[in-house]
Design a protein around this nucleic acid. Structure first.
Length: 385
RNA sequence: CGGGGUGUCGUAUACCGGUAGUACGCAUGCUUUGGGAGCAUGUUGACUGGGUUCAAUUCCCAGCACCCCGACCA
């Protein structure tokens, strides 16, 4: 991607209302744009990060055989009445009506919708165990959205649902997903501590929250603030019973499936990552979810055709190799501004090509999380990545 | 939902009961180019409604929006 064509703009000033560091940097870097309280658009840069987070999560779920599907965000109130949650949950659940007067709700989670599907397709013991996963929007009429992406009215959640034949089998599944969550946070270098939690409105027996210590967090962990990154629930028969999710066991008798659910808020995870990885100059993305892997910067290319030529060559080579590269080809920006933007955006590896580096037939490489830079011969550039 | 705060160009802000200013951005030109460059020219603004007043962006009231603290939170 050529930066001269990149949609979005870095900002020198933080938005007046932004207080959380993740909100400030994501807004200044041109990752997100606020539409209203708790409602944000993801600009191309932010969307790339979001998609990368999704990719990491999907890869980990694929490893344990989860199948991906997607369910609607508008549900008939009927299914929420079946479990009683329609009346248990307060104003946080958006309630709307169709033209014909049908009562509908905007989904804040998908246990009911999932249970309705499971009821139809789970029939025999061989259909289980089953693990289904989706990435879908959740809508919550929050009394107080806050902290940029930390608490939203609309967000994208990875929510997986498991069905098992016995408690013992469920325990295995639960442990597997638990491990998946630990792997996901590990890949992002995030410290996420699982703690037993109340399952609240979700019901069921027990649940675990994955908490990341952070100044800005809303929850408490050992007396300190923390951000809830994920939550796993042992739902037992809470949904299986009202939705009649029976399977025929080996002995021919009907038995209820045991259900679990597992959720991670992608938007919040992005914000939490910035909270964990930044410095005074900007974001320092963990490699797996960085919007680009390499930030290629040319300096003085307008006055020095050779720099331009070499930079274009390296760019083309990287593209040909499939390297995700953001190429700062802007000729109306000074070196200082380019560096400042690069630090703000936070791409892991910066490659600078200038008159100075060309004198030594080299480019300069610097990792975003390191202070020092080093020169690499241009002839060796291709072998680095 | 309780408490507090804030609404001024695209962004961040200043001043003011009497023609609204600065910086950044954006546009054009020239000069610049290793840490947010220089000069010139141009560009755009008082949340909404009501009240007080000769006169309101400024004071008062209401609404709306946004932010923060708390409650709630999957």
């Amino acid at each position: 991607m050529k930066q001269s064509k990149l949609f979005g703009q870095t900002l020198r000033e933080a938005p007046k209302d932004a207080e959380a560091i993740s909100h400030i940097y994501l807004a200044r870097g041109g990752f997100i744009r606020q539409l209203s309280s708790g409602l944000f658009s993801f600009l191309p840069l932010g969307f790339r990060v979001l998609k990368n987070i999704e990719k990491v999560i999907r890869e980990e779920f694929d490893k344990i055989g989860a199948q991906e599907l997607v369910m609607p965000v508008i549900h008939p109130a009927e299914i929420w009445k079946k479990t009683g949650r329609y009346h248990e949950i307060g104003e946080e659940l958006w309630r709307i009506k169709s033209q014909g007067g049908q009562e509908l709700v905007l989904s804040m989670t998908h246990e009911e919708a999932m249970a309705e599907i499971a009821f139809r397709y789970i029939q025999k013991y061989n259909d289980l165990p089953l693990l289904l996963n989706q990435f879908q929007i959740k809508l919550r009429n929050e009394a107080r959205p806050r902290g940029g992406l930390l608490r939203l009215r609309e967000f994208i959640m990875q929510d997986a649902y498991s069905f098992d034949r016995s408690e013992a089998e469920f325990d295995k599944t639960y442990k597997k997903v638990f491990k998946v969550y630990q792997n996901i946070f590990k890949r992002l270098n995030l410290k996420a501590v699982p703690i037993k939690a109340s399952s609240g409105i979700m019901g069921g027996n027990e649940s675990h929250e994955f908490m990341m210590p952070a100044e800005i967090g809303e929850d408490k962990l050992d007396g300190k603030n923390a951000i809830e990154l994920g939550h796993t629930f042992k739902l037992g028969l809470k949904y299986s019973k009202p939705f009649n999710i029976y399977f025929t066991a080996k002995n021919g008798k009907k038995e209820l499936a045991i259900m679990g659910s597992y959720g991670i808020g992608l938007d919040r995870l992005m914000a939490a990552t910035v909270e964990a990885f930044h410095d005074k100059k900007g974001i320092i993305w963990p490699e797996p979810i960085a919007p680009f892997k390499i930030h290629l910067i040319e300096l003085s290319a307008k006055t020095d055709p050779d720099v331009k030529k070499q930079a274009e060559n390296i760019y083309k080579k990287m593209i040909a190799e499939g390297t995700e590269v953001l190429y700062d080809d802007r000729d109306d920006k000074t070196a200082g501004e380019k560096f400042a933007d690069a630090d703000l955006i936070g791409i892991p590896l910066r490659v600078v090509i200038s008159v100075k580096t060309l004198e030594k037939n080299s480019v300069e490489m610097k990792q975003r999380n390191k202070e020092s830079a080093k020169l690499i011969k241009i002839s060796n550039v291709g072998t680095i990545f």
